[in-house]
């Protein structure tokens, strides 16, 4: 990302303030650890799947009998196409697969333009780091997406989950109920009183713009000058300012799992969403962070649900 060695920041900050330097990794709760495996399918049968990981290794994993897969809809794992890019949730030291998501994309941003009558082509502004991307909403999905995006016009936010097909990103499922305000009019956080809370609750989502196996989070509340991000520092949750390189202790309230995840990017788009997650109960308003898919899955999240209720503390 062009920042000076951010790993080093943790060591230096800990030394200056005389605190213990923590390291990223999963927490003790939640039972059996999950591992996210990313790769391109080389071969798949009802019981085995072989993938090539981004670093060029080949991995063969056992498909659990109860395993399910998602590729624009629920499918049997054996029906996944060869050469599809998959993210798998694996148990037993990462050898037994129980959930597979194939070619899944997350389309989050501000609507720039809308074209087309049946299949709608939408251009999204995904923030200064991520640029713009063009997505297609196929006719069969328009009703489902429009009902959750009542302000379907330029300047408003858009968030959907879909699949990559023939190089195009198809939006299929709404990932949230669209906030009612324009993207540049985020409501201020509720007033907070002296003595910050030790833990902050809200919703955590995922984004597909991270590298394949990257573990990390995009956090909205970073200083604009530090992150080189003119849109940062906006959030409707009362979040503290942190730096790229700081650690977040994230607890998935729905799955009772926790992990310590480093902040690797500025989450300026996530900060604009003042929405709730209703995955288990109703979360307070505001997206706390956006996780990389691997971190999200290892915390027990399901990519198709799009969010989980979470609490964060400082790692």
């Amino acid at each position: 990302m062009g920042f000076p060695d951010v790993e080093r920041r943790r060591v230096l900050a800990a030394a200056a303030l005389g605190r213990e330097a923590t390291t990223p990794g999963p927490g003790p709760e939640g039972g059996e650890p999950l591992r996210a495996v990313t790769g391109e399918i080389l071969d798949v049968s009802p019981h085995m799947i072989a993938v090539e990981t981004p670093d060029g290794r080949q991995e063969r994993l056992v498909i659990a009998p109860w395993a399910t897969a998602w590729h624009g809809g629920d499918v049997a794992p054996a029906d996944l196409p060869v050469r599809a890019t998959v993210l798998m949730r694996a148990l037993r030291e990462g050898k037994v697969v129980e959930r597979i998501w194939a070619d899944t994309v997350r389309l989050t941003g501000t609507i720039v333009s809308i074209e087309g009558r049946k299949d709608v082509t939408v251009e999204l502004d995904c923030g200064p780091h991520r640029g713009r991307r063009t997505i297609v909403i196929p006719y069969r999905a328009t009703g489902r997406l429009r009902v959750r995006h009542p302000q379907f016009e330029p300047g408003y936010l858009f968030d959907a989950i879909g699949v990559r097909k023939d190089g195009a990103a198809l939006a299929l499922l709404p990932a949230t109920s669209q906030p009612a305000y324009p993207a540049r009019a985020v409501p201020p956080p509720p007033p907070s009183y002296a003595g910050a809370q030790a833990r902050i609750a809200g919703t955590i989502t995922w984004s597909d713009v991270f590298d394949g196996e990257e573990r990390g989070a995009a956090y909205p509340m970073v200083e604009r000058s530090d992150a080189g991000c003119p849109d940062a520092g906006v959030s409707c949750a009362a979040l503290p300012y942190l730096a790229i390189g700081s650690l977040l202790q994230i607890q998935n309230v729905c799955a009772n799992r926790s992990a310590v995840v480093p902040i690797v990017a500025c989450g300026c788009v996530a900060g604009r969403f003042c929405d709730r997650c209703v995955e288990c109960g109703t979360s307070p308003r505001g997206r706390i962070t956006e996780l990389s898919p691997a971190s999200y899955v290892e915390l027990g999240g399901d990519l198709v649900n799009g969010c989980f209720n979470a609490q964060i503390g400082l790692g």
Binding site: P4, R9, A16, E223, Y241, G245, L314
Partner: peptide
Amino acid sequence: YDSWRELCW
């Protein structure tokens, strides 16, 4: 050579 803000520091 590097500067960053974390919490109140």
